[in-house]
Design a binder for these strands. Structure first.
Lengths: 138, 138
DNA sequence: CAATAATTGCACTTCCATTGCAAGTATTAG
DNA sequence: CTAATACTTGCAATGGAAGTGCAATTATTG
């Protein structure tokens, strides 16, 4: 098990207090978060810093962006099984219409999608919407 | 073949000049359009009117909204084969990374997606990104 | 320790989506 | 036909999210 410091360093990201905190925040959340989620969690920090931290994480492939159709970009840590830098490794996301949370279903790979003649598929975004286990259960 | 007037009336939408024009515009376009596309096509009309017209069309199920991941909502007429009011009728959308256009692949139905135990799937949004036939071909 | 590079915070800006209100236009009842 | 009512349109303004420039601070390297 690597420390967060090691993870960051291995990706050429300088270790700062801010980045450690944000990484930890993302790691603790099991759902994808918006920028304003992070903002609310770190009221002392500046919006821009949070924004740029996430962007850095994204560039260095330790976070991936999720477009769940709510219109607001969400982010989640790339971990165990998520190799989102590889175009062909695509997992799907589930958005709960009840609690409004979005989670990565990392084990669920997206089936091969056929596109018409002349079209070249480079990337697939698949979001399933419905009721999540927590909300449907009881 | 119904006239546009008949289409609108059958959906309980009052026929106005504005609505006929916007419907015609959407019908002529074979790609999904953004609000500002419409805005540029109808510079004389007010943004709000265009916005509300599209929203009315959407409510009455003659237009469906597409979230292609560009961050800007696009709209397309529901026609021949698109029954988007029925949750189970889901076609996919193709977004071209080159020309930035998004089209409905109405004939291409989304395969059944399995979700984990406890999750209830109500809706699926699938956007394939890549190069469209016009851009890839010649 | 000095020079350099990266990070953070502040102040803006832009863009899209959305709403309130007033004016105009169409529809319906009397 | 006219008055009352409902719907539509345009204007103005708001809010939220994303993104950028610049200065100040902090870290890194020689």
């Amino acid at each position: 098990m690597q420390t967060i410091e090691q993870v960051l360093e291995s990706k050429d990201i300088r270790v700062t207090a801010m980045r450690l905190l944000i990484y930890k925040f993302l790691a603790e959340k099991e759902v994808a978060v918006t920028l304003s989620d992070i903002e609310h969690a770190f009221v002392k920090a500046d919006r821009t810093t949070l924004y740029r931290t996430i962007k850095t994480f994204e560039e260095k492939d330790i976070v991936h962006q999720i477009d769940d159709g709510t219109g607001i970009t969400k982010y989640a840590l790339c971990e165990n099984g998520c190799n989102c830098e590889i175009e062909t490794d695509l997992h799907l996301h589930f958005h709960c219409n009840n609690c409004n949370e979005t989670i990565c279903l990392t084990e669920h790979k997206i089936p091969q999608i056929k596109v018409p003649e002349g079209f070249v598929s480079e990337n697939v975004n698949l979001v399933v919407k419905g009721i999540c286990d927590k909300c449907s259960g009881q």
